[in-house]
Computed example of a mutant assay.
Amino acid sequence: MRKLSTLTKSSLVTGAAIAAAVGMAASPATAAGTWTVAGGGTFTGTSTNSVLTDSKTGTQLKCTSSKATGSAANGTGKSGTGIASISAVTWTTCSGPLGITFNVTAQGLPWALNAVSYASPVTTGTLSGVKAHISGAGCTADFGGATSGSAATIDVKYNNSTHTLSVLGTGNLHAWNVSGICLGLLNSGDSVGYKGDYALSPATLVLTSP
């Protein structure tokens, strides 16, 4: 049998080491999160500046207040995926063009809060599973993801210093099943953005990552 040269042996050892390193990097164990949650538990977030904007028509739906209830479990070495959960969302006194008033109903709950990156004191992430329905005088519409019936993922930030969860108005939220006098103001398939700053109470939740 032909003997391996020193160079070949060295190459094999080096290749094996690289393969092992790649394998470790891709393994679920090393892909585990490094997030820490402190001051968690159940919280309520209140917004007084929530607004939904149709990016195509410019139509805006504004609400005088919105309240979100959620929870986050304390711990270290946590995955950023589903680091917190939003179990209920309500909106109060919502109106749009022509003085139309709306009722807004959250759907697809619970929604998952996902941490993506951290630059002290701010965590940047997403809120996934988002769906909602509006109904007004002769106007109804659904809101969800990029295809009818799907859930949306929207961009958020959480500030440890102010304990505020800010919904940024970006993501893949769309209007669907638009009917009645909403047509032309909102249209099925239109991309929409939702913004709002939710001040958390109690003001104790802290999300960190190295």
Rank of each mutant, 00 (worst) to 15 (best):
A119D: 14
S188I: 09
S87K: 10
A21T: 14
S11H: 10
I154A: 00
S161C: 05
G193R: 05
S79E: 13
L12N: 01
S135H: 10
L109F: 02
G125L: 04
S65C: 03
N172R: 02
S79Y: 12
S27Y: 05
A29W: 14
D142Y: 05
W35M: 11
G96S: 11
Q60S: 11
T42M: 12
Y158R: 10
Y118H: 03
Q107E: 15
T140I: 11
H174C: 09
T90Y: 07
T123Y: 03
K9M: 13
T6P: 05
G15D: 06
L109D: 09
V22P: 00
T124M: 01
K195Y: 05
S188W: 02
G45R: 04
Q107Y: 09
S85E: 14
V51I: 13
G41E: 11
S5E: 06
N172L: 05
N49L: 08
Y118I: 14
A146L: 06
G58W: 06
A72Q: 08
W111E: 01
N114W: 08
V51W: 00
R2W: 07
A73D: 15
S65A: 13
A137T: 15
W35E: 00
A29S: 14
W176E: 08
F143W: 09
S117N: 11
T140N: 14
T147L: 12
Y198E: 03
L7H: 12
C63M: 02
A199S: 15
S55T: 15
A141E: 07
K56S: 14
P202S: 04
M24D: 07
V116C: 00
A17D: 07
T170G: 04
W111M: 08
A21L: 15
V167E: 02
L127C: 08
A146I: 04
L109H: 03
T105K: 13
S50Y: 00
T30H: 06
C182E: 06
W176N: 03
T48R: 00
F43Y: 15
V167Q: 01
I86E: 02
S135Q: 13
S71D: 14
S87G: 14
L186T: 05
A203V: 09
S10V: 07
T30F: 11
L4Q: 02
T30E: 09
Y198R: 04
P97H: 10
W176I: 10
G41K: 15
T30Y: 11
K62F: 01
A38F: 08
V116T: 12
C63Y: 06
P110F: 12
L12I: 09
C139V: 07
S5T: 15
K56H: 09
G171K: 00
T36R: 08
L52M: 11
T204E: 01
T34A: 09
I83P: 08
L109M: 12
G149M: 03
G196M: 02
T164D: 06
G180N: 11
G41F: 14
D197Q: 03
